[in-house]
């Protein structure tokens, strides 16, 4: 009896987890999730790492992260960051973060922009797509669950698939980097 109950609970949990992985949010619920990040945030920002407020649910969702991968090309993140190896912009496939590697730190980096090149996409990318991009960016250094991260590319593979990227310990988070210091 006990075993049956445990089995039931376990399979129910598995099912729920699988649902999250496969869920396709085609009809995102406007306006909350489709909100365009047009609100100006406070000018005051602490220099250090911000505490994690909420986990990014898209990090368990294969569809959302694949959308993130597509948007990474569409919105021309490739132009500066290449396929994660970096170029004009810093590489994203290593675990070194200048402005923090937590989901909402990446969100803030995309929305607000960063000194010396990273443009602000405020008002240009709907919130839910920024979260999809943030989830994808974290999958590049293996920070998200393996079963949901994107597998091989649609076109020529230029790097290891996100799925087979080893998880790396994030480092270098926080502080204002040399490159972002105001000229004195």
């Amino acid at each position: 009896m006990m075993i049956a109950a445990v089995c039931g609970v376990v399979s129910a949990l598995c099912l729920v987890a699988a649902c999250k992985r496969e869920e396709r949010g085609l009809r995102v619920d406007p306006p909350s999730s489709a909100r365009v990040n047009s609100k100006t945030l406070s000018e005051l920002r602490p220099g250090n790492v911000q505490p994690i407020s909420a986990p990014n649910e898209f990090e368990q969702n294969a569809f959302a992260m694949n959308e993130g991968k597509r948007l990474y090309e569409w919105y021309n993140c490739v132009g500066c960051h290449a396929h994660g190896g970096g170029g004009i912009g810093p590489p994203l496939m290593d675990a070194k973060w200048i402005y923090g590697g937590a989901p909402e730190q990446i969100f803030a980096t995309i929305v607000e922009g960063r000194p010396n090149g990273m443009p602000s996409f405020r008002g240009k990318i709907p919130d839910y797509q920024v979260w999809q991009l943030a989830a994808y960016v974290r999958s590049m250094s293996g920070q998200v669950s393996k079963d949901a991260s994107p597998s091989r590319d649609d076109d020529m593979n230029v790097k290891k698939p996100e799925q087979s990227t080893e998880q790396q310990e994030p480092r270098g988070t926080g502080g204002v980097p040399k490159s972002a210091e105001r000229p004195q």
Binding site: V28, A34, P126
Partner: peptide, 14 residues
Amino acid sequence: SQELKPGNRMPPIP
């Protein structure tokens, strides 16, 4: 547009 043609690549623009 997702209500009219679900899955298309255009995000809702509020």
